[in-house]
Simulated scan of single mutants.
Amino acid sequence: MNSRAEAFRAGAWSTLAGGATAEILARSGAAWVALDAQHGSYDQGGIERTLLGLGSSPVPVFVRVADDSAAGIGRALDCGAAGVIVPLIDGPLEAAAAAQACRYPPAGNRSWGPVTALVGRTAPDARRANDAVMCAVMVETRAAIGQVREIAMTTGVDMVFVGPFDLSLALGRDVDELLADGSADSPLAMVVRVCAEAGVRAGAFAGSSARADRLAALGFTDIAVMTDASLLATAAAAEVARWSNATP
């Protein structure tokens, strides 16, 4: 994927496999949907069922894979993911390996075998698949922040994606204090700056509207502004509270 435009995209994060929550998010108007197989309830079966069920969706569906293994990356893409978000990338060598796992030779080392073709759907040829795929790598460690420029410049990386909760833990800072740091040399400002210089997108997970606002103000181009679990919990609690105070 060669997505260099800087237009802001609000994404939706699905942690709850099954129950059609990803399908609901895909119809919400979000610019993209991510299935979380690292900290969400998506296993391989859940990824496959959801992606095949969303095959006709015009909204790009990404998978945050459980780790940076080439097998896991390839399997998610074989099932129809538009791209992957790869966690815990510490440096450019790991970023390059992730990018190569996303693409068929000669651009990478992905193995041919789309699951979509097994169920009667047309799979793109290798060249088109290589051009269309989105490889996002997560920076969420002290080592990654120290090499974020090199990571962003890595061939085949389309987006640097910040996990602010893990990053705040790694840096020994409160997550909201990290987000509130408006200095030019703050870790988050540096990520946005080097992404702009490298011509790649700057993504982040928010977890709340207030954090999404702050990330947008910092210049991030792709933000997971909502999750299925938080939307359901908030709406359910509000509705129960309303009826608890109702007069029969």
Rank of each mutant, 00 (worst) to 15 (best):
G156P: 06
L93C: 02
T122N: 11
V157E: 03
G156W: 08
V162D: 05
E140L: 07
V86H: 09
G113A: 15
L178Y: 00
R103A: 07
L51F: 04
T122V: 15
L52S: 10
I47W: 01
D176A: 01
G46K: 04
G83L: 06
P92Q: 03
V84I: 13
E150V: 01
Q147R: 13
A99C: 08
S69Y: 06
I85V: 15
E48D: 14
N109V: 12
R173Y: 00
M138G: 11
I89H: 12
V133H: 09
D125N: 15
S168H: 10
A152C: 13
R75L: 10
G55V: 02
A70K: 01
A82H: 06
A170L: 08
A81M: 01
L178P: 01
T116H: 07
G91L: 10
G46F: 04
P58H: 06
E150I: 01
E48Q: 13
R127I: 14
V157C: 07
I145S: 13
D158L: 13
L171F: 02
R128S: 14
C79H: 06
L171P: 02
G80R: 06
A107V: 05
L93Y: 01
L35T: 02
P164Y: 11
R103S: 05
R64L: 07
L171A: 05
A34W: 00
D158Y: 06
M134A: 12
G46P: 03
A117T: 13
A126E: 09
S56W: 04
M134Y: 00
A136I: 01
G80K: 08
